[in-house]
Design a protein around this nucleic acid. Structure first.
Lengths: 157, 157
DNA sequence: TATTGTTATACTCTATAACTATA
DNA sequence: TATAGTTATAGAGTATAACAATA
């Protein structure tokens, strides 16, 4: 197997894992009366420091206007609310409501429990984590990667 | 770091890698005048043995009617065509046109070249592949996984 | 001037339900 | 009866362009 083929195989694996995770997420979303995308957004909303509409759009790689309508729908369902930023009056902080938090917790727990990774032993998972981090950090600047992945210990969950 | 946290970290990595791949795919899709979803479908259309509308829907985890409209749009752009199945007259085989093939090749090449995985050395990629396969095979039946991932040597590309 | 967020608009994406044709 | 595919419909997701408010 040459390098090109190996890369393709890795992408096929990525696709397969994403498909498995997505299937679980979809099932949960259905129970909760949400769409896949909304469930995904809920998950992403809870990671990292302070969430704004702009930051959510960056994270979901969509236009700002798309984030606006996404937040509209989540707000209508009572899962998030828009709070004015204390110092910058242009910015709206997107906060999870208690119901939003509860659902977010269910999403994370449900997904990580049934994750394909859960079948690996602890050692394998550590090795996998190291390899993935290496791949991620190699292609993006540390800042960009940090925004998506790293969560300060105190702010986790 | 306990197991729950490690699992969450792994999912964050998965998200980050998917985001990087998606960003590359999006750029290419834009150039080609396609949407992300169409580009993804094009990629998936080319993997595995014989593609039918039903199989595409399974693979993209969407409803059959969604696959129908997706194929409609790809057909309108001249990237695929519907061919009657030789023995089962209910089935339509979805074939890539020459233009579809060319674009599909560009998508795969572009993405695998700029993939986060490309930065890992050969040894690391082999280890990563092994770990991912292990995670995939552990949670799904061999048959299901085979449909998504394994491609017989003769039919690849 | 640049940035944050919104609105209006026009697509694409998506599932549900009802249908036809074939197995 | 079951399966492959389509159509009609309605709502969610999406980007573009134009805009207001604020930095």
């Amino acid at each position: 197997m040459d390098d090109q083929q190996l890369n393709e195989q890795l992408h096929d694996c990525l696709f397969a894992i994403r498909a498995q995770v997505h299937a679980e997420l979809k099932e949960l979303a259905r129970e909760a009366g949400l769409t896949d995308t909304q469930t995904d957004a809920l998950w992403r909303l809870s990671r990292g420091p302070e969430m704004t509409a702009r930051r959510l759009a960056d994270r979901l790689q969509c236009d700002a206007s798309t984030a606006t309508s996404m937040i509209d729908r989540l707000e209508r369902r009572g899962l998030v609310r828009r709070v004015p930023h204390p110092t910058d009056r242009r910015v709206k902080v997107i906060q999870l409501t208690p119901e939003g938090c509860a659902l977010r917790d269910r999403v994370i727990q449900h997904t990580t429990e049934r994750s394909p990774f859960a079948r690996l032993d602890h050692e394998s998972r550590l090795r996998l984590h190291e390899l993935l981090r290496q791949a991620i950090d190699g292609t993006h600047s540390a800042d960009e990667a940090a925004d998506v992945v790293a969560i300060p210990e105190g702010e986790r969950r």
